[in-house]
């Protein structure tokens, strides 16, 4: 029992926090109708940015603790801006969201490697870890708590405030929303900021808590794992947080399957296969209530003046 508790605290906490934040961010972005194909690239970029910010500030401030916190905030802010660029760009121009999303994915991968390497070449390879988020029980408990609080806040925003209603209206029918005076671009810009900040936080914590260091390619595919969780939670924050508990556990445990005699390649592939499987299973459930249904305009180009 005690061991299980220990495991929850030490091993699961970082994974859970990372995936839940990123998946909630992705859920918010897709709720406004923008297909989130950028997520994996921008997740990789977040995890690299966090490293470089952290080593930069710890050199500047000559101390670890404030530097990592600063890095966390700045990463969230940078990625929020990039995400809002992504959501805005795919709204103001009637471009294929898929193509813009893939471009951002590739740019995110490449830029992530560049940014991380800059930090690494300038300051050397070193461990970075959010000072407060050590191994203690208290810190893990408060990390769980803050994640739950963040998810609750997003939930309230999405379902209890006007901004959230605007986000969902734009995700359902942007033309109609714009006819009643909702600014589609403005709403998607704000949604990009919010969702991007969450993905950025997730990616940053991946480096600053789960890994505690950096190497090129770090975070690759973990964005997709978060994406799968957001789909599995039907893009509904509390549900995302709930299913994330299950899938974070799976993602953490599956790579250990090789201890049971499975080939290492199978345990590496297991999280990917699991992600695909949950997306398929969950998407095949029909007749969902209005709060859980897929946003109607998801992935469709928005073109204001249209005569049919």
């Amino acid at each position: 029992m005690r061991e299980l508790l220990e495991w929850f605290v030490q091993i699961l906490a970082p994974a859970y926090v990372v995936y839940t934040l990123a998946a909630t961010g992705s859920a918010v972005v897709e709720r406004c109708g923008v297909l989130n194909l950028a997520i994996d690239g921008l997740f990789v970029l977040s995890s690299s940015l966090a490293y470089t910010y952290a080593v930069l500030f710890s050199a500047l401030l000559q101390g670890g603790a404030p530097a990592t916190w600063l890095s966390l905030l700045l990463t969230a802010a940078t990625v929020a801006l990039l995400y809002s660029l992504y959501t805005t760009l795919s709204t103001v121009l009637p471009v294929s969201q898929g193509a813009i999303g893939l471009s951002f994915m590739f740019i995110g991968y490449g830029l992530g490697a560049v940014v991380g390497n800059i930090g690494r070449i300038a300051f050397g390879l070193r461990g970075v870890r959010v000072a407060y988020l050590g191994a203690g029980h208290g810190s893990a408990a408060s990390a769980y708590l803050s994640t739950i609080l963040a998810v609750t806040a997003v939930y309230l925003l999405l379902y209890k405030l006007k901004l959230g209603v605007m986000i969902r209206a734009v995700g359902e029918d942007p033309r109609l929303a714009s006819q009643v005076g909702v600014s589609v671009t403005g709403t998607r810009l704000l949604t990009g900021l919010l969702g991007g900040a969450l993905v950025g936080l997730g990616g940053a914590l991946f480096t600053l808590w789960r890994v505690g260091g950096w190497s090129q390619g770090q975070g690759l595919n973990h964005g997709w794992l978060a994406y799968a969780i957001s789909i599995a939670g039907w893009r509904h924050p509390p549900l995302v947080a709930l299913v994330s508990l299950f899938f974070s556990t799976a993602y953490v445990l599956l790579p250990h399957l090789q201890r049971l005699g499975l080939p290492i390649e199978a345990s590496t592939a297991a999280p990917y296969v699991t992600s695909i499987a949950i997306m398929v299973v969950v998407s095949s459930i029909r007749g969902r209530s209005r709060l859980l249904a897929d946003p109607k305009s998801l992935g469709r180009a928005f073109f204001r003046e249209e005569q049919v």
Partner: peptide, 23 residues
């Protein structure tokens, strides 16, 4: 918007309500 409630549909059209006003 079909998937929103009556109040939600009215809310998004009301500019006297700020974006952070509550349902």
């Amino acid at each position: 918007v079909e998937r929103l409630t009556v109040a939600e549909n009215i809310l998004i059209a009301l500019r006297s309500y700020g974006i952070l006003s509550s349902m």
